[in-house]
Design a protein around this nucleic acid. Structure first.
Lengths: 226, 226
DNA sequence: TCCATACTTCGACGATAACCGAAGCATACA
DNA sequence: TGTATGCTTCGGTTATCGTCGAAGTATGGA
């Protein structure tokens, strides 16, 4: 029951720069191969192998083998949430960055958090869903209302398959740039996927930034009453 | 804006067994001196000094000097929340502990989380406050209603002084044993203090366990409609 | 003033772990 | 079957960091 050794173990996993860089990269939400992660982190393949094995054993990463490739992704939403929390905490601890370059403001506006929408746009979405009574708080939980279910179906989200998934459908995730909650969970992921499919948004290949097209932004706003 | 090096830095701080033990100890909520922490962690004073200095520099600990003593406490609620999150994650990752000894079940029932009530009793309290409409969710925030303010004053909580404190009055904190939210923030702390003052509960000196007296449990239940 | 206590600094030792070169295994494709 | 590609294992080097003994500074009390 004494969780001490465990928190040290996870802490140690997070405490190496190379591993931290890999984890941050995986916050994009995409699964990446060992060599991609090696390149991203700036180490050789051997070194990456060792790091990835440790993180998988530690429960931080999930692994999918595909032919001669090994695809790694964050193990689950909890891990993603932990990383966001850590970033939030370290952002608060560090001397506040006053200079916010163009990339920073883009990150604050909209980015992927593991696989769902975060940043200012993520919060707008979250709040709009609540204002329109599509979502409501039930104690600490976030649940989809009947009205909300109806809307999601109309919008082209397959709720049945989401319900089947093991991760909870609605989860709130603390946004590190805004310090407010945005929508995570399988519904959050499905909405993000839908936005991409509709070409409302496009991911920037190299960062977590999400770009809204002009049309996308218009339709996003009108759909959610913003 | 790239939070990578920072998360590694915090991770490294958490990644040492001795430091993790110290942090866990401080989850009791009390501030402890350097030598107490040294003893608790099983290291010499020199070693403790070095660890404590690092954690203070890293923003995890707050320091108060008092004569020749140095009192250390967790820097803020965010740090406490991070630790609870980590414990929850590592509990989920580890092979599930099926054996729940008496101490375990006591921990699950009621314990201090930094300085407020956690565990099953903490969740009961949180839920009761919401059921009775003393607290309500406002978007992601938890706020005290007028009815709630009234109740708290009656109950002997000095809301004015809480409002003056820098930490938010209501915060929800994820409970690692129950995976539900309980009440943190300055109000959570004040309630906990009140329970102790009323002798409803007593802290176990050596663990985070909180024991309800028979009378305390009765009055707790009737006060919050349980 | 003198001593006890609490904490810190310094230096040295030892363990751990990150890193890469070299070689090895496994899969895919021609 | 041969060759390229992706990943792994092994061995050795290097750097970092936790640890404590010894000595030093600061505070409180007799």
């Amino acid at each position: 029951m004494d969780g001490t050794p465990n928190i040290a173990k996870i802490g140690a996993l997070l405490g190496d720069n190379t591993r931290a860089r890999m984890l941050s990269t995986l916050m994009h939400g995409k699964a990446l191969t060992a060599s991609e992660l090696a390149r991203e982190a700036g180490v050789t393949a051997q070194t990456a192998t060792s790091h990835l094995a440790k993180m998988e054993a530690g429960g931080l990463l999930a692994l999918r083998k595909q032919g001669r490739h090994k695809y790694f992704a964050l193990a689950n939403d909890d891990v993603a949430a932990l990383l966001e929390t850590l970033m939030g905490l370290s952002a608060g601890v560090e001397p506040i960055r006053i200079t916010t370059g163009p990339r920073d403001s883009a990150m604050r506006n909209a980015r992927v958090c593991y696989n769902h929408l975060a940043g200012n746009k993520g919060i707008q979405l979250h709040d709009a869903l609540i204002t329109k009574r599509y979502l409501k708080h039930n104690d600490a939980e976030l649940v989809l209302t009947r009205k909300g279910s109806h809307f999601m179906q109309e919008f082209g989200i397959d709720l049945d398959s989401l319900q089947a998934s093991r991760t909870p459908m609605c989860r709130s995730c603390l946004d590190w740039s805004e310090r407010r909650s945005h929508l995570a969970g399988s519904l959050g992921r499905a909405l993000m996927a839908k936005f991409e499919q509709l070409r409302w948004v496009k991911r920037d290949g190299n960062s977590r930034v999400i770009k809204f097209s002009a049309k996308g932004e218009r339709e996003f706003n009108s759909t959610f009453g913003l």
